[in-house]
Design a protein around this nucleic acid. Structure first.
Length: 128
DNA sequence: AACATGACGTCGC
DNA sequence: AGCGACGCCATGT
């Protein structure tokens, strides 16, 4: 009886992920963004080692909804300084609101003086 | 396993 | 200078 080895009840994605997933790292980088500052997906991606994974960063932000501690995804914009993800907020426009409250001026869905407010994790966290 | 999608980025026209 | 297409990496179907 009992032929073959009975496979243990493995839950889906039980041990699939390790302690740190690309999302976890991404969230932490974003959380490090100081108030009144903004960063870009590409910069964060480069900081986590996914230089070309800018899309993954955006993907991670999408999952960041309800993640604790809260992830200031509104401080993350594209390389253009444009609030590309504003439509993913609830309600849309919340992203701009939050930025304005933090002192970041937004015009036409784009961060004003983006390069000035740009916070590069690679530079700030990089050991000189 | 292959295809399609995505909060980006870069190159080409 | 504005629009289109490809590339990247991960996820879902």
């Amino acid at each position: 009886m009992a032929k073959k080895t009975t496979p243990p009840d493995r839950k889906t994605a039980a041990a699939t992920q390790k302690s740190e997933s690309i999302y976890d790292v991404t969230y932490q980088i974003v959380r490090l963004v100081p108030k009144g500052r903004v960063t870009s997906y590409g910069a964060v991606a480069a900081a986590i080692g996914a230089t070309s994974g800018a899309r993954m960063v955006g993907y991670a932000m999408n999952l960041a909804h309800g993640v604790k501690p809260k992830v200031p995804a509104h401080r993350v914009v594209n390389r253009n300084g444009m609030l590309t993800g504003k439509h993913h907020f609830q309600p849309p426009g919340l992203m701009e609101e939050l930025l304005l409250k933090e002192g970041v001026k937004v015009a036409n869905d784009t961060v004003v003086d983006f390069e000035k407010l740009f916070w590069d994790p690679m530079v700030e966290l990089a050991p000189r």
